[in-house]
Write a protein that binds this DNA or RNA. Structure first.
Lengths: 230, 230
DNA sequence: CCGACTTAGTGTTAAAATCACACTAATGCA
DNA sequence: TGCATTAGTGTGATTTTAACACTAAGTCGG
């Protein structure tokens, strides 16, 4: 079967920058090892071709699941990369997305299927083919900017989390230290964290309270013009 | 001539939301009247197909110039619209851009070439085909958000402008009144406006000082972590 | 030429947000 | 039982924001 058009068309792909966070670990990004040329054997962002009958968003979600096992993650369009020479074979335009997953709840199993997917700390990502390095940088910049005015950081944490975990998350992404008392005061003042009345377990020190993020309340405040601002 | 591929490919287009501002007028958007089906005769965003050997950015700039005569405008990628049914004929994915032009310096002549391009105030944009209304809303939201933390508003003004013009611009885009003294104090404190030592002419009242935006200084401050913030 | 009209330009103060800073409380473990 | 480790808490100085009203300069019309 083949398809013919009057004018040449670029191929259209999606690529996903998947950020993941594990308890007491640095922020990581998920890469897969390429099985095919070009850049066969190199690490690259998961992605693939947009099917003719699916939306571009759906293509990103599908590729993410197929290639890494990550399902139902927070997924948002990032930017479209359209330089004519970004793929050495032929003209390929790629719509990039970024995803946020918490590794405590998504199994790393599926993600490492066939052991050709791996998490890399941001400071040690290997060289990647195409313009994937640039896409990654773009995603980091977006995440860093966005986390300051939208409560997307919670997507990287388990449903219940301690204030220290939340603070560490912000410190990692923003790459600077935050004052513990100021951070806690500010977040609690927004009144969007629900005290679950539960405590951490299995830690060799005073157990911290566990909170949940009140997404419903946030959504309704947002409609009234409230701005989450760190 | 025709082009054949093993799998079907969506067509790839660009669409441009062109914002323009004229002296003492409301913010406007530039639309063209469609000459072809679908939606023949309706108003729509200027745009067209991405050529196989040009970057997507270049395609946006080219289409903007071809269809509206606008050249050298500030042009930035907005979002990629990829719903399968957004074009009734066939699968078309569109990368949307937005442009900022000041109508004092770009001639409206070229833009109204063949009288099938017109500026519309945002409050009276006519119905548009495809998902162009959604694209426009997306662009307005982006402009409104971005103008608060990047000095892109200056792109809509002539090279020299008065503080009142600048304030009116912000008031229009943000859709709220700003306090004159606070606005002036804040902007002058940033020390990014250069007093040109010239004054307005041809006004029936006290002439205001004309300023220029110091883009070089801004760029260098930005590299050092300075944040333009209104 | 002068009075009326229109927009430019200018400071102060109260309230709120931000920032820096250090100790006690709870828990597991040796 | 005491040591190690992280949780949890308040205050004061500084900066930023927000509200507010008059004088200055210039044009125009009579």
């Amino acid at each position: 079967m083949s398809y013919t058009y009057e004018y040449p068309r670029p191929a259209l792909t999606v690529d996903c920058v998947v950020f993941g966070l594990q308890q007491n670990a640095a922020l990581k990004v998920l890469l897969i090892r390429r099985k095919l040329d070009p850049f066969k054997g190199d690490w690259a962002l998961p992605g693939g071709f947009v099917q003719i009958s699916e939306s571009v968003d759906a293509a990103a979600a599908r590729e993410l699941k197929e290639e890494t096992g990550v399902d139902n993650a927070y997924l948002e369009q990032l930017y479209t990369f359209g330089q004519p020479d970004r793929d050495p074979r032929e003209r390929v335009v790629s719509v990039a997305y970024y995803a946020l997953v918490n590794l405590s709840e998504h199994t790393l199993q599926a993600a490492t299927d066939a052991s050709d997917a791996r998490w890399f700390e941001l400071s040690v990502v290997p060289p990647m083919g195409f313009d994937h390095r640039q896409i990654l940088e773009c995603a980091i910049a977006r995440l860093r900017a966005k986390i300051r005015y939208e409560p997307i950081g919670f997507e990287l944490l388990p449903k219940m989390f301690t204030l220290s975990q939340l603070q560490q998350l912000y410190e990692q992404i923003l790459e600077r230290d935050l004052d513990k008392r100021n951070f806690r005061a500010k977040l609690l003042k927004m009144d969007l964290l629900i005290d679950t009345q539960q405590k951490e377990t299995g830690v060799a020190h005073r157990a911290a309270k566990l909170y949940r993020f009140d997404m419903n309340k946030y959504q309704s405040l947002k409609r009234k013009g409230f701005s989450f601002d760190l």
